[in-house]
Design a protein around this nucleic acid. Structure first.
Lengths: 227, 227
DNA sequence: CCAAAAGTGTTATGCATACACCCATGA
DNA sequence: TCATGGGTGTATGCATAACACTTTTGG
């Protein structure tokens, strides 16, 4: 085509803020940068978009390469796009489309995948540090977005909180702990119970109760997301 | 650099949903496509990002080229990024970062600028048509975003509604008509009045009243955004 | 006086919060 | 029986909505 060379070429990448709840705190997958630019700093996982690949599939592919997880459509959300001319000094121009992914807590998942040196790190801790590239801002934006999504999930979508739960069935206190970790504050157990139960089409009771594991206190009823 | 040729090159563009209130309806700037791909369909204004240009300045530059307007920081918001491999058949890969811009109603502005054949069109009408490229989805996403932003402006930012007003000073019914056009529904005048007045730091009274122009009914008090 | 728009008052309703209190279980 | 967490009931405050009503102008 006639105009092929008239416009500047860019590299396009996806960066993914992979979120999970660990020990009651919101964690993100971070990769310690090796020798070279921003050495030793934490960075977000990501990679280049393929020549025939749409953006969302590219994010999904990277996520699976890093964690092994295939998440639900609604658990992978575009956060924003970052393209300052100097954001990656290694190349002339890299524009990154940032995504957030909510995955269940699974400590072992990272090992054996691409990101052998990836680690779960509390988001608060990461945000208190100097991250590589513009990943500090990306992480902050992703956390803000996650808070909005957890607080008021768009109608018709699978709530983001569901993606953090390791099992289809869960107690409401488990669900509440997810909300608390994402929002960064404690919620009243009773009010949370009522709010979730009275929200149409959010959870359905299974009738069964939690196997008395730790065993102190009344066993909780088990629920399931969306019928 | 060693890796320059390993990754696929993309073109990066910005598309802008320029919004204004005209005759009580939410309008967007649209350009009728000439001979070539998607001929005759309406498209959004936009253009390529420069080699040394950040994304937001690129959107701002395009906006000014098309309309002559320099909008406030908070009146130009990133909506999302669209990069399906086949979204622009003219080139191999074009990734577009979509923005929404709120501008005051000024019918004459378009003439004499780049977009001589740009026209204001009601958003509802455009969404009922088949737009060029993936601009239908972009426009729909931008309108949804505008509604959220008008309804609950992020604290500390200049409310989006202010950007639609042609003057610093305005009556509350003028402001209300902006809300109504964006939200697509009517609001109770009394309740709107109270809500706006009691919201801290939103509007400040000027003490003056509207010059009795059309002249029927009690002249409205004039307000200003953010003291 | 009448119409029309600006602006205020009043009441109902829903929702979130705070918190008291009961339930069911393990030790 | 006690501690612990699950779960319900209830009062209160706040934001919104609905709408009656007053105010101020032009015709």
């Amino acid at each position: 085509m006639a105009y092929e060379s008239e416009y500047p070429p860019f590299y396009v990448t996806v960066d993914i803020v992979v979120l999970a709840i660990r020990d009651g705190r919101l964690n993100a997958l971070a990769i310690r940068r090796g020798p070279g630019h921003d050495e030793g700093k934490w960075a977000l996982p990501g990679g280049f978009v393929g020549i025939d690949e749409d953006l969302e599939p590219a994010a999904r592919r990277e996520l699976e390469e890093e964690t092994g997880f295939s998440v639900h459509r609604d658990a992978l959300q575009q956060v924003g796009t970052y393209g300052a001319p100097d954001r990656d000094p290694r190349y002339l121009r890299v524009v990154s489309v940032a995504w957030l992914a909510a995955v269940p807590d699974a400590s072992a998942v990272v090992a054996g995948t691409d990101a052998a040196h990836a680690e779960w790190r509390p988001v608060d801790d990461l945000l208190a540090e100097d991250l590589a590239f513009d990943h500090h801002r990306i992480l902050a934006d992703a956390r803000d977005r996650a808070r909005v999504l957890v607080d008021s999930p768009p109608p018709g979508t699978r709530p983001l909180a569901a993606a953090f739960l390791p099992s289809d069935e869960f107690s409401l206190s488990r669900l509440r702990s997810v909300y608390e970790a994402v929002l960064g504050r404690e919620l009243d157990p009773g009010n949370f119970q009522r709010r979730v139960k009275t929200t149409q089409g959010l959870v359905t009771p299974t009738g069964r109760r939690e196997p008395a594991a730790g065993g102190r206190g009344r066993p909780a009823e088990l629920f399931r997301i969306r019928g």
